[in-house]
Design a protein around this nucleic acid. Structure first.
Lengths: 188, 188
DNA sequence: TAAATAAGAAACTGAAACGTATCTTAAGGG
DNA sequence: CCCTTAAGATACGTTTCAGTTTCTTATTTA
């Protein structure tokens, strides 16, 4: 393998940092371990990130930004929600939950929380949630007056809560229950 | 201050450990810092606990001799809920969340989850939630047909979710919002 | 193809914490 | 009042990581 530079090198380092993080946790991640794993050396890392917090933030943000997608339009609010929640539950949910546990040390150190990390990842971008809600308003499926921010995030909050508690994918019946017996009655 | 021994000394050390834990977090807690804070020295700690994990476990267990109290009857469902959620948020919520984060490693090892731990702690006992809901049904404040298990636990789930995301006590306005704009509309 | 740039290796300093060993002295029990 | 026990102070060797320095060498680019 030749000597990497610039963007390619940076990507490899952040990839390595992510792997370290998910395999061994925040506490056990060091500049040395990441450098070794990326096949480079410590000064290369220090030239880019001032400390472990910055390095980990960059790795987490990068990994998650890559995965941000706008949800498919199924034609109905209910369909959009169930599709999106299901995908979240199966693909990204448990993983992000595990990650937040691995990041416990980071939160303690920085005095931040999962909420703030989430803000960093979104960074002003439009979330899938907003997309779905706006479509539903256009279709006339939602009374906009009833859609407070908290209610708009309700299905996602409940899904996350369920995932955090069980550390497993959420059953389809539970997702439907959340949508049909809690969220939809509140917004129309 | 004279020289402490036995139970009194141990209590002082665990108290100090708890304070360190909640003020500076797990990562920054050391045997030295706890010893200093407790006004004793490191070997005294090492004679009792093999490592940091054991020490913290002991401190956490001691602090949380779990007392399940039945919630006070304020005369209304709304009052009961707000009082209980507020108390949970201020006293026990952040603590349980911190504990959960600390237990992340344990969960990973054993393949268990918060939900199962919670079950173990409750162990068939009547939860405060059931108590509150039953009172409300007797008062005629709730339509029992609408009170599915998921809806009954909804305010508690949302509070827990909020606490986990922010790692801070939940503001009174948020608690009221949860009760007034989400839970109550769903049950009457 | 020469000059500029940055990667990568190695070593080093300093801080911090771990865990242990030694010694003294206070407390409590008989 | 003596004797056993354990508290508490100090100091140590070790390890680990942070962050830097120096130097060599590969890659770009002009």
């Amino acid at each position: 393998m030749g000597r990497r530079r610039g963007e390619a090198l940076e990507a490899a380092i952040l990839e390595a940092a992510w792997d370290e993080l998910s395999e061994r946790g925040y506490a056990n991640l060091t500049f040395d371990s990441v450098a070794r794993r990326a096949g480079t050396s410590k000064p290369v890392l220090y030239r880019r990130w001032a400390d472990k917090q910055k390095l980990v933030e960059a790795a987490v943000v990068r990994r998650n930004v890559i995965q941000l997608t706008t949800p498919a339009d199924t034609g109905s609010l209910r369909g959009d929600l169930i599709a999106t929640l299901t995908e979240l539950s199966e693909k990204r949910g448990p993983f992000l939950t595990q990650l937040s546990l691995l990041l416990a040390g980071y939160f303690a150190e920085t005095g931040t929380s999962f909420a703030e990390l989430r803000e960093m990842i979104l960074a002003g971008r439009r979330s899938g949630r907003d997309e779905i809600m706006e479509r539903a308003i256009e279709r006339g499926e939602i009374d906009p007056a009833k859609l407070t921010p908290r209610i708009a995030s309700l299905p996602f909050d409940l899904l996350r809560g369920e995932t955090m508690m069980t550390l497993r994918p959420v059953a389809p019946e539970v997702i439907e229950e959340i949508v049909d017996t809690i969220f939809l009655p509140l917004v129309r």
